[in-house]
Simulated assay, not measured.
Amino acid sequence: MMKTIEVLDREFASLRAGRATPALLDRITVDYYGSTIPINQLATVSVPEARLLVIQPWDKSAIGEIERAILKSDLGITPSSDGNIIRLAVPQLTEERRRDLVKFLKKRGEEAKVAVRNIRRDVIERLKALQKEGGGFSEDDLRREQDEAQKLTDRYVKEIDRIVAAKEKEVMEI
């Protein structure tokens, strides 16, 4: 269940919410000498201003490949380069794009909740199987463990709701 929360956090961090963050580039990989390598392993990524990302490659010959990878990505940002560094100006989000992002956030939140509930279901099935095998479980023990699994599930579902609400607020405020 904790892994589900971590995946959701990582995915939400890489969403473009109108603010520049190095996490925007986490999913972008660059073809570099026959290998696909994440940008953060080829360059230093910094945020000098709220809406500007600066990528400074360690190998200047990689600039063209990094620009191509950014253009091919779903970011929708056009890079500008001076031969030494690449600048990405993150544009302001439109109202329609904000609403689409909120829908996407809620959809991903629901998917995370389903994943957590599936984990609960799997745990309960394993507990019942253990009891049938004679694992020393009484009916009361089984009920207690099921209740504990439900409490844990409820806690993680609340955490997912909190994460989705926080990201939704961030998207709508900018």
Rank of each mutant, 00 (worst) to 15 (best):
E6S: 13
L152A: 13
T78P: 00
A166F: 07
Q131C: 03
R10F: 03
V54P: 04
A69P: 07
D122S: 11
R16M: 04
S46P: 01
S46Q: 11
I174T: 12
S81Y: 04
I39D: 07
T94D: 02
E170G: 06
E145L: 15
I174A: 13
E11S: 10
V157R: 11
I66C: 09
G64I: 09
D161V: 06
L42R: 08
G135E: 13
V114G: 02
I28L: 06
L52P: 05
E125K: 15
P79R: 04
R99E: 14
K113S: 02
R117N: 03
E173L: 08
R155C: 00
R19N: 12
I70D: 01
S138Y: 03
P91T: 12
L42W: 03
G136S: 04
E67R: 11
L53I: 15
T153R: 05
P38V: 07
V45G: 03
G18S: 07
T44M: 03
L130S: 15
E139P: 06
R120M: 13
R87P: 04
I5C: 08
V171P: 06
K60T: 12
E67K: 14
L130W: 05
D122W: 00
F104C: 09
E65Y: 11
R126A: 11
R68I: 05
V7A: 15
G136I: 02
P91A: 13
G135L: 11
R87A: 06
K60Y: 01
I70K: 00
R155M: 06
S46E: 06
Q150H: 06
M172E: 00
E173C: 04
Q146D: 11
A149Y: 05
L71H: 12
K169E: 13
E95Y: 02
E148C: 00
G34N: 08
S80V: 14
T36M: 12
V90C: 10
P48F: 09
E6I: 12
K103Q: 14
I5N: 05
D82T: 08
S80L: 07
S80W: 00
R98G: 01
V54F: 08
E139F: 06
A20S: 13
S46T: 15
G34K: 05
K151T: 10
T44S: 12
K72E: 14
L42K: 08
T153F: 08
A112M: 06
I119Y: 07
T78Q: 14
L25R: 04
K151M: 08
P22W: 11
V114W: 03
R98S: 01
G83W: 10
G109M: 04
D147T: 09
Q56V: 15
